[in-house]
């Protein structure tokens, strides 16, 4: 059994290593300052920014420079708002041209109410983007087959949702998440719907490689403090997963050989 050591435990995505397994979203904060303190307390090394929110032509754009100015974190531009593959691809190319790098969180969410991802357009866009040299982290519903198809298309991770964005409903898709985690050869990042540190911890206990949190932290009374709580929860869940935590509902006797040795 692996022993857990925070100093050596690393998440590797497309050759880049991350110590923190907590990714943050940058939307919905009451101010850039509130976001910055949440980033700091969370210990995150990856922050996603909606391209539609930033002024790519303006290098001093508040939101963008807050993220790019922080050397501890990697900017992960996302395509939220894209309605189909064409729009998502166009936005990614634009972002790369404007110097945002070639990592993208692919979000194709044609329905503006629940922001649920379109599996068909997401796969289409992923295939194009991978060919064009992007490192693609797609946001998907918790669909194990789609996850495999995206892995085969060359995506760097899969990012299945726990429940709809902003719902704070936790891991409603748990059964499918477990299948995805069990089948995946790329890191699985549980994205969307995580509203409480306990839910983040649970995702990590289940074997998720990382979680992404936005709404819960951004709309908390004290975003920085809750970000700190999420950091601890993610570390606790990771440690538990690597500690041979006994499975749930296991009511077996203390030694499996009890009967034999009597």
């Amino acid at each position: 059994m692996k022993s857990y050591d925070i100093k050596t435990d690393e998440l590797v995505i497309a050759g880049s290593a991350f110590r923190s397994r907590l990714f943050l979203g940058s939307g919905k904060f009451s101010s850039i300052a509130a976001m910055n303190s949440a980033i700091e307390e969370s210990g995150t090394e990856m922050v996603t920014v909606a391209l539609r929110r930033v002024d790519l032509e303006n290098p001093s754009d508040d939101l963008l420079s807050a993220v790019t100015g922080n050397k501890k974190i990697r900017l992960l531009p996302n395509t939220s708002g894209a309605r189909d593959a064409d729009e998502a691809v166009r936005l990614c190319r634009l972002a790369r041209e404007m110097g945002c790098g070639n990592w993208v969180k692919l979000e194709v969410t044609p329905d503006p109410r629940f922001l649920l991802p379109d599996p068909i357009e997401t796969l289409k866009a992923a295939e194009i983007l991978v060919k064009e040299g992007f490192t693609v982290l797609p946001y998907i519903n918790a669909d194990p087959i789609l996850a495999k198809r995206l892995e085969e298309a060359g995506c760097a991770t899969v990012m299945p949702l726990g429940s709809p964005i902003g719902s704070n409903r936790g891991l409603r898709t748990e059964d499918n998440l477990r299948i995805i985690i069990g089948m995946s050869n790329v890191p699985v990042v549980v994205d969307a719907g995580i509203g409480a540190p306990s839910q983040a911890a649970r995702a990590m206990e289940m074997g998720a490689d990382a979680v992404l949190v936005n709404t819960a932290i951004a709309t908390a009374g004290d975003p920085a403090s809750l970000a700190g709580a999420f950091r601890m929860a993610v570390e606790a869940g990771r440690r538990a997963m690597l500690s041979g935590m006994p499975p749930e509902g296991d009511a077996s006797a203390s030694s499996p050989l009890d009967g034999l040795l009597r």
Binding site: S30, E87, R90
Partner: peptide, 19 residues
């Protein structure tokens, strides 16, 4: 808006979405 704890958003869309 800032005084009310709300962040004014000037841009929440990108013409890059459209052709």
């Amino acid at each position: 808006l800032k005084k009310s704890g709300l962040d004014p958003v000037w841009k929440d869309w990108d013409r890059g979405f459209l052709h």
